[in-house]
């Protein structure tokens, strides 16, 4: 049987329902900027200056329940889908702008475990290679259930 693309394969994750304490505590948003989509952001916006930036695949924040506190708190963000977005060369230029002009402190790329998502790490690597300044880049891979599968500095 043809399984098709693992990135769009249907998966039922409902068995997890009710397993965790569904928070009665209100989670406060840690977002400190707008916009966030990579086509819309300007790398020169003040909140990117010297910041620890997270470059996040669109699906990540839905998979990881505590995204705001675990990854967004104190950080600046750009989101993108490496599978579906068009004109991704623009992303490379913007990431390069973060590194060279906004002089960001670090870049963390957060992706899902599906194979097509690794394109976002490649994009970041390409931008970093063409930049005349170096920053530490790390990537984190999350499972469909939001667990960390891999966390490594490049």
């Amino acid at each position: 049987m043809l399984e098709g693309c693992p990135g769009s394969k249907t998966m039922d994750l409902r068995e997890k329902e009710g397993q965790e304490d569904t928070a009665s505590v209100k989670v406060i948003s840690q977002l400190r900027q707008w916009p966030i989509q990579m086509h819309l952001i300007s790398p020169m916006a003040p909140y990117f200056q010297g910041a620890d930036v997270v470059l996040v695949a669109d699906c990540v924040a839905y998979a990881h329940g505590n995204f705001h506190n675990d990854y967004l708190k104190g950080k600046a963000i750009g989101i993108a889908c490496p599978k579906l977005d068009s004109e991704q060369e623009i992303y490379i230029e913007k990431i390069k702008g973060w590194i060279e002009d906004a002089k960001i402190n670090t870049l963390t790329v957060l992706i899902m475990q599906v194979p097509c998502c690794s394109g976002l790490v490649k994009l970041a690597q390409e931008a970093a290679q063409s930049a005349n300044r170096k920053v530490p880049i790390k990537y984190i891979v999350l499972s469909l259930q939001g667990e960390i599968l891999q966390e490594e500095w490049l």
Binding site: D52, I104, N105, T106, P136
Partner: peptide, 18 residues
């Protein structure tokens, strides 16, 4: 140490070493 450094500290360390 790597496990205990925050992302911010790794960036800071990188700059200080540079």
């Amino acid at each position: 140490m790597d496990k205990n450094l925050t992302v911010f500290q790794v960036g800071e360390l990188f700059n200080q070493f540079n």
